[in-house]
Amino acid sequence: MTTHTAFIGSGNMASAMVDGLLARDPNARAKLGCYSAADGTAETLAKRTGIARATDLPALLAPADLVVLAFKPQHLASADPQLTTLTRGKLVLSILAGKPLAALVQVFPQARNVVRVMPNTPAAIGAGISAYCSRDPLSPADRDIVETLLGAMGQFLALPEEQMNAVTALSGSGPAFLFEFVAALRDGGIAAGLAPEMAAQLAMHTVLGSAQLLVKRGVDPETLRNQVTSPNGTTLAGLQQLQAGDFRGLIKKTILAAQARAVELAREG
């Protein structure tokens, strides 16, 4: 059963969480509430889903046991001072990119526990993967609360906080890298003579089907790659170009650059 949950911030990721929870349990609507300071997203989310929209933080947080921080990360430093006392004894879960537990604990020192989560955008269709860590070990009840919420968006795993910047680079930023790869496949198809809309459709569904096959087969990607690659065939000719351009090395540099920036953002507070 869904716990009483308050969303501070009502953008895309909060919407994904709400949609996922309601898909699992339509009766959860009565236990969900949202608030946004001035951008109108809370009104939009409440109208679309039927959850409560609070006009101030005390009204939102009074009945809540779980508080989800879903506003822009740069607003943490100027968060309403009331939050310190309003979150006393509550479980606080943050999806604020780049904000470490130490920074969150400064704002929510009286929370019974603070959880940091790195989701990704496929969560919007229930196909995301989230990593989380917490200030203190989670009680069984709180672990169930956290994993119920994250499970509404897709897959999840628990990791030490020192690995969260790597997660941010791989799965947080990763969808953008994959979209860029799909765009490159599309452009390659166009260069080969396909109509743009046909090239786009072939590229999208090739990536989608290949990813589903990889997950379903449960083998390493090299095994499936080799099944497609015939000696002296077309696939091998293409793979040789990727190898000549150090494709894997380039992707590794891409991930490490994103990780380095995540570290910088965390230090900036």
Rank of each mutant, 00 (worst) to 15 (best):
M1A: 15
G9E: 13
S10A: 14
M13G: 04
A14Q: 14
A16K: 13
L21V: 10
A23S: 12
R24L: 03
P26V: 09
A28Y: 01
A30M: 01
G33Q: 06
T41M: 02
T44I: 02
R48V: 07
A59I: 03
L60F: 02
L61Q: 05
P63H: 06
A64Y: 01
V68Q: 01
A70D: 00
K72W: 03
H75P: 04
T87I: 02
K90A: 04
V92D: 01
V92H: 00
L96N: 01
K99F: 01
L101V: 00
A102W: 06
V105I: 06
R112V: 03
N120S: 12
P122L: 05
G126H: 11
A127W: 03
R135F: 00
P137G: 13
A141D: 10
P160H: 06
G172N: 08
A176P: 07
F181R: 11
V182R: 10
A183I: 08
A183R: 08
G189D: 02
A191I: 10
G193M: 14
L194K: 12
M198P: 05
V207H: 05
V207E: 05
G209W: 05
R217W: 02
G218E: 06
V219T: 11
D220V: 04
L224I: 15
L224Y: 10
N226V: 07
V228E: 05
T229L: 09
G245F: 12
F247K: 10
K253G: 07
A257H: 07
A258P: 09
A266K: 01
A266E: 03
